[in-house]
Amino acid sequence: MSPRRTDPQTRTALVDIAAGLLAGEGPQALSARRVAAEAGSSTMTVYTNFGGMSGLVREMVLEGFARLEAYFSHVKATDDPVADMALLGRAYRRNAVTNPHLYAVMFGGARPAGFSLTDEDRQHGRYTLGTVVGCATRCIEAGRFRAGDAELAAHLLWTAVHGLVTLELGEYLIDPCNADVVFEAQLTGLMVGAGDDLAAAERSVRASLARLPGELGGVTPYPAGGDPSASGPA
């Protein structure tokens, strides 16, 4: 007998439901019975699609990075690599705000007891960062970033933006230093810290903001977080 085929839309719905339960109610809410009930189906749906709860949690992580990669893929390479880098930062933030439940699972903020990521799982995140490494390489080659290790530069940018996004999702950033204010200043500061001239960095960050509707406005919204356009200017 051939294996039963799974429906991609059903898989995505189950991933979003499970991530929402985990983030909203904690690990105790995450069970095949509860996920199936929220989806209006039987527990067999979970096992058919993922082989069990561990498979479903792992799929949340992979789906989260797939959505991040989808945002990154909409950022075009231009003759202003620093603007491209700033727009990648905006893409990272927008993905997190759009998919907060998956974001929490991707990086360990929400995860059921007994489940741990393998190095192979984490490799998906490292692979996604390759886009940022490539952009950092172009920034160095253009003389905008100081000569050095592009991978290290990408990691420094990643950790900085990740920290801001984590605080934003936790609702720690409020007026007068709300997330938008801090993020715009952070982008410029990160580019200068990487070796760019202040005036040039400010121009590129402004240019990345102008490109935002055209390049990231068309990214397909996902049900976990609603409409990406609702996440503010970044």
Rank of each mutant, 00 (worst) to 15 (best):
R90A: 12
S54N: 10
G225M: 04
A153K: 02
S208H: 07
P81L: 06
T118V: 12
M60C: 14
N178D: 15
A154V: 01
L209E: 11
V165R: 02
G214W: 00
A150D: 02
D196V: 04
L14Q: 10
S208D: 06
M44I: 01
Y71A: 10
G24D: 14
T6R: 11
V165T: 10
Q186A: 15
E63K: 07
R144D: 10
L169D: 01
A224F: 05
E69C: 13
A150F: 05
L129M: 08
M191A: 15
S229A: 15
V132A: 08
E168Q: 06
D7P: 04
T166Q: 03
H155C: 04
A104L: 12
G114V: 11
P3W: 03
S204Y: 03
P228K: 01
V105N: 01
G51L: 04
Y127C: 03
P8G: 12
G125A: 15
T159C: 05
H101W: 12
A154C: 03
A234D: 13
A185N: 10
Y222G: 13
A185Q: 11
C135W: 00
A207T: 14
V57Q: 00
G226P: 09
L68S: 04
A179G: 11
M1Q: 12
T128S: 08
I17G: 00
V82E: 10
G226L: 08
T128L: 00
M1C: 10
N178F: 09
F107H: 14
G89T: 11
G195Q: 08
L22V: 02
A91M: 01
R11K: 15
V181F: 07
G148Q: 07
T45K: 09
F72R: 15
S116K: 11
Y127S: 12
R67M: 06
L173N: 08
V133H: 00
M85R: 15
G108L: 08
M85K: 12
H155Q: 12
G51W: 09
D79L: 02
G125L: 15
T10I: 12
L156I: 06
S2F: 11
L152W: 07
Y71I: 02
G24A: 15
T10R: 12
G114Y: 13
R203A: 09
P228N: 10
L187W: 07
M191D: 05
L56M: 06
V46W: 03
G108S: 08
L21Q: 05
I140P: 01
E59L: 03
L30E: 08
